[in-house]
Design a protein around this nucleic acid. Structure first.
Lengths: 101, 101
DNA sequence: CAGACACTTGAATACTTGTTCAAATGTTAA
DNA sequence: TTAACATTTGAACAAGTATTCAAGTGTCTG
């Protein structure tokens, strides 16, 4: 096995890591992130694409934003969201490999 | 916007993927998996190492077992658990990179 | 400036998940 | 077979999370 894996992981880091996975643990959020992995989109577009209310998407986006997984910029009336993390796509891709086996 | 945005991942796969991350989204389970990544252990040992009741660990193990992240074998009275998934360590390591930045 | 549009926010409710406790299963040894 | 040990299981409760609804902020257009 790999002894290096657990070394240097204190409770706080473990909590942070768990939090990261927590954000990836919902199919709607995952879909959201997959969509954003292809380019930035406004809240209304995401709402339509996911089939949930604008408010619900907005709440999810705030959560993802606090976790620094997404970021946004205003363009006129609209607010465009995009991925803000290089690891997210990797994580999703890796998880996908697992699931597809 | 359109379904093509999320092309390549149907709802079922997305749910599976979310489920996988869900199992990694708790610090105790993560610690559990880290311990098992170093070798197999009995339920009682895990309970002691994690500081939670045997029952609680057992419940967590059942969940992880259904997700095929761990497997077990009986040895006398004891039941020894071990990791049953190659991707788990990779996922944890990758998540760690993210957290440690 | 008024009104429409795009989105955010807060509080309440509804849903999910985890833990506990007690009872049940399986194993070994006397 | 009985007793002790190791673990599992199910139901109930507690804690955490998500969604909704209604009200609020910020931005553009006429």
């Amino acid at each position: 096995m790999k002894p290096t894996l657990a070394r240097g992981l204190d409770e706080a880091s473990l909590q942070d890591l768990a939090d990261l996975f927590q954000h990836l643990s919902d199919p709607r959020r995952l879909r959201l992130l997959l969509i954003l992995s292809k380019g930035e989109h406004a809240v209304g577009e995401l709402s339509a694409a996911l089939g949930v209310t604008i408010s619900a998407v907005s709440h999810q986006l705030q959560t993802l934003r606090q976790a620094r997984l997404v970021a946004c910029r205003r363009e006129g009336k609209r607010i465009l969201y995009h991925l803000d993390d290089v690891h997210v796509e990797q994580l999703v891709r890796m998880g996908r490999e697992h699931v597809e086996e």
